[in-house]
Design a protein around this nucleic acid. Structure first.
Ligand code: MN
Ligand code: MN
Ligand code: ZN
Ligand code: ZN
Lengths: 141, 141
DNA sequence: TAGTATATAAGAATAATTCTAACTTGAGAA
DNA sequence: TTCTCAAGTTAGAATTATTCTTATATACTA
């Protein structure tokens, strides 16, 4: 039973283990490309033709509430799902819009707990620019 | 003529100096609270009852294209206008949703130009948590 | 001051997300 | 295993931010 751990996750957060939820979680496990809800929907629709966008949103919302996933806002009007809750940075390509994970050792130590009396819960660092592939394409012109 | 420099800005980027555009730029000059397009609209409506949201969006889009302002995406579905193009960080309060500027000296030196062959254009760092005011309110309970 | 390219306003269109309500189902109880 | 029902799903409507369309208005140049 390859879904055992997924079902365990759902049990832990007291959500019924429906085929739709299992499919969403399985998909997120295999897919670390920061997909959008719409992309998840379009892909799962092949397996579950009747799946509803509302179910995608509902499930993602529940997983987010439980801290199992996060949401990234790098572009206007588009949210990307982050399945890797280990602290890390992102590089966003302004040309192809791809999001790359940037792992840095620094997260081992220098996370401050406060700044100016503000209580810090999390930190995000985002690099914007052009990925190597887009840089070479540009060079061809 | 207090609007002289605003008109100069518009001339430089070859946009007609309409009262609406002047009002938007003057508003942004005085208001460094990262307002949303809707907030700008609601406030300018008092002075220009017939102003259109489309004009706000058009003007902001033009100013952004010229690098005069930037746009921040910290919350789902909400864009905030950044009028201060000097590099700096942000603290976003998860409770009151206010955005605070965080100025750090580090921007004087350590901005890398590349990471893993990616060409970096800009960097953003965001702190999420609870501002001092919300922390004290919470303490009252 | 007139001619014209550009800008504005109002509302329609679009797109992401959320809501609603009727139908369905997973999972515990018997 | 079957029954029961709280919880979940779906389709489509509603909402909200943003963009588009187009008729009208206006800033700027000569
Ligand atoms: Mn990531
Ligand atoms: Mn700022
Ligand atoms: Zn790219
Ligand atoms: Zn606060």
């Amino acid at each position: 039973m390859k879904y055992n751990d997924t079902i365990k996750i759902l049990k832990e957060i007291k959500l019924k283990a429906t085929p739709q939820r299992i499919a969403i979680i399985e998909f997120l496990k295999e897919n670390r490309t920061h997909p959008t809800p719409r992309q998840i929907y379009d892909l799962l629709k092949k397996e579950y033709p009747s799946i509803s966008l509302a179910t995608i949103y509902n499930t993602l919302s529940a997983l987010k509430d439980e801290g199992i996933i996060e949401e990234l806002y790098l572009e206007k009007d588009i949210s990307h799902i982050e399945c890797n809750t280990t602290p890390h940075d992102h590089f966003f390509c302004l040309s192809c819009k791809k999001i790359f994970d940037i792992m840095e050792d620094k997260y081992k130590d220098d996370i401050p707990h406060t700044i100016k009396d503000f209580k810090i819960i999390s930190i995000r660092k985002e690099y914007f620019g052009y990925c190597d592939e887009c840089v070479s394409k540009e060079g061809e012109n």
